[in-house]
């Protein structure tokens, strides 16, 4: 009257309990396994970004992510505009036309379109004293508004300035900004217009 937990030494013979029908794996289960594996590979390929730790859902791949977040390095004028509007536009105006008594214009200004080495120095260390812009005299002071920006961001904003509001200048690269930054070292003294004119 009891269930034997032990296995019989030999396969069940007649008279004992019926053997379980052979426990073979049905073919359809294997086929399903392969179908599921195939589906799984595709699914992972589409959603998993191949183990890239920077990609989070809802993005599915690095490429899709980069479409929304432009790469650093290389000049990006959209980024330049964003930086300009948050850092420089307060004084120089969103339209680059300057504000009377506050800051001279950037549109059409020879300082903006002139030598890159000269231009980069202005936001890096600031500018003070008399200066002629578009035939008009100014005598104000600008703090080193660009000193805290990265080379990429400063290059982007200067490129944006040189190509917007009717300006037709060339773009500024991050390397050019980096070189000037190294040249002036940790200078905190603002430049004067006269001093800048010696820079080519």
């Amino acid at each position: 009257m009891s269930v034997e937990m032990r296995r019989p030494a030999q396969p069940a013979t007649e008279g004992r309990e019926e053997p379980t029908p052979q426990g073979a794996v049905p073919m359809w289960l294997f086929i399903l396994l392969f179908v599921a594996l195939f589906w799984g590979m595709n699914y992972f390929d589409r959603h998993g970004a191949w183990f890239n730790g920077r990609v989070y859902a809802p993005y599915r791949s690095l490429a899709e992510l980069q479409m929304h977040q432009p790469p650093t390095g290389g000049i990006n004028l959209e980024r330049g505009r964003a930086v300009y509007e948050s850092v420089c536009a307060l004084c120089h105006g969103v339209d680059g036309k300057g504000k009377p008594g506050q800051a001279p214009p950037l549109a059409g200004a020879e300082w903006v379109l002139g030598p890159v080495n000269r231009l980069v120095r202005i936001p890096l260390a600031g500018l003070t004293g008399p200066i002629e812009v578009n035939g008009q005299q100014w005598n104000l002071a600008m703090p080193a508004m660009g000193a805290a920006l990265s080379d990429e961001d400063l290059a982007a904003v200067l490129s944006y300035m040189r190509t917007s509001w009717g300006n037709k200048g060339t773009e500024v690269t991050a390397e050019q900004v980096g070189a000037v930054r190294k040249e002036i070292g940790n200078r905190t003294q603002p430049f004067t217009a006269a001093e800048l004119l010696t820079v080519q």
């Binding site: 019989p8 396969p11 004992r16 309990e17 019926e18 029908p21 052979q22 426990g23 073979a24």
Partner: peptide, 11 residues
């Protein structure tokens, strides 16, 4: 408990 020998165990 169901009164059967345990069968082969591939599954």
């Amino acid at each position: 408990l169901a009164g059967r020998e345990p069968g082969r165990e591939y599954v």
